[in-house]
Simulated scan of single mutants.
Amino acid sequence: MAKRDYYEILGVSKSATDPEIKKAYRKLSKQFHPDINKAADADAKFKEITEAYEVLSDGNKRAAYDQYGHASTDPNFGNSGGGFGGGFGGGGFNGGGFEDIFESFFGGGGRTANPNAPRQGEDLQYRMDLEFEEAIFGKETTIQYNREAECKTCHGDGAKPGSHPVTCSKCQGSGTLNVARNTPLGRVMTRQTCDVCQGTGKEIKEKCPTCYGSGRIKERHSVKVTVPAGVEDGNQMRLNGQGEAGKNGGPYGDLYVVFRVKSSDLFDRDGAEIYYELPISFIQAALGDEIEVPTVHGKIKLKIPAGTQTGTNFRLKSKGAPRLRGAGSGDQHVKIKLITPKDLSSEQKRILRDYAKESGIEVTEQDESTFGKLKDVFKKR
């Protein structure tokens, strides 16, 4: 299946700025992250979005993509002696001959990455569950998780203390071997991983007794996390250097903490704005009242004017959640919900009939038991 255009995947134009590309990526990655979106195709979409961002967020990769399209992401792109990236300028091949070009299409050409170069470790992800109030006010906590760390006995080189790894005698430190094979087009050279050093370019004669030559150990790692006030469900924060150990002296990867916020029994939240539904009686709405209202910051008194209608909204300034990016807090919105009384006494009914008569309202009363019987009939059907 042909790959989709990277700009189309992120939903931006080809003239989009770096901030616009980053903003689009953050929105889409949050929407399709497998830990948040449980749809069957979420994982594939998330990988597609990440791949597009990795290219378009890098100036050099983006320029190559704009010129050559998806061909620029091929591992052989720009290799010496062929490919799409060069070697054909100025009226000559600029080094390398037909053999180099031919080999690049059959797995043998191009430059090989140094297997002994430092490489950053893998990133990790940790899901942190937060109570509704914890997300609003933030907190400090210590989390624990499993990761691969550098072996403290051999300091990551895999060799027994007092000894050192040596250059692989078979591949001479390249980590790969050139192997001739016959094809319908003739005899060609292919490159494969060295079977002695497993691609590392080094042999360990005396292995470390702790890590058995891997240079890494499994550990239960602890790190303190400061949850910022105002985080929302699906937000994530990066902790530099808290991921997996690097290789060949490379730095540790990063840890991404993804927040999962529990819902509240009282409140709804949209960003920094908090919503609460306040039930009041007909008497309170008609005559007015001063009512104690809960907020995430504590209870406050709210004056209900006489004649307040159901559905009326009141705004409590700065009683919402702190703004994660910006100053101050949002507001709390209080929506009035009028509650109709049930099981009225004879005296209460008399008073209401007098009120209706005084107001010129004609009421054809219905027996509550009649409705109850009708409900039972419909339920049985």
Rank of each mutant, 00 (worst) to 15 (best):
S369V: 15
N37R: 03
G234P: 08
I291N: 04
E358P: 04
A40K: 06
F46R: 05
F282V: 13
G86N: 12
P228I: 06
I304D: 01
K23M: 13
Q125S: 12
N248H: 05
K170C: 02
N76V: 09
C194W: 00
T190R: 03
Q332F: 10
G89K: 14
D123K: 03
K299N: 15
Y7S: 09
N94L: 08
S369K: 15
K30P: 01
G330W: 01
K45F: 00
N178F: 04
G95P: 11
C151S: 12
A71N: 10
Y6C: 09
V293W: 06
F106T: 11
K61M: 13
V179D: 07
K207A: 10
T176S: 09
G330Y: 05
N94G: 10
V296T: 12
D289E: 08
G320M: 05
Y145M: 08
Y275N: 04
P34E: 04
P118R: 01
L185A: 14
F88T: 14
Y65R: 03
H221P: 08
L302I: 08
T183M: 02
Q120P: 04
S29E: 06
F88Y: 15
G158K: 08
K357H: 09
Y355I: 14
Q284K: 10
A180F: 15
Y276A: 04
D367F: 10
Y68A: 08
K375W: 15
L255C: 11
L374N: 10
D254N: 13
I9Y: 07
C154N: 08
G328T: 12
K30E: 05
G307L: 12
K205T: 07
F105R: 10
F106K: 02
L287D: 12
I304K: 00
T226L: 05
A245I: 11
P251M: 08
G320W: 00
C197V: 01
N114H: 10
K247D: 02
N60W: 00
D268P: 03
A356C: 15
C171G: 03
S57M: 11
G97W: 04
Y276D: 15
K30Y: 14
K373C: 06
P279T: 02
D195F: 07
A149V: 12
T308C: 07
G186Q: 10
K22M: 09
V227D: 07
I300F: 09
E122R: 13
I336V: 12
L266C: 06
Q192K: 13
T141M: 15
A321K: 07
C171S: 02
D5R: 07
S80G: 13
L316N: 11
E150F: 08
D268C: 08
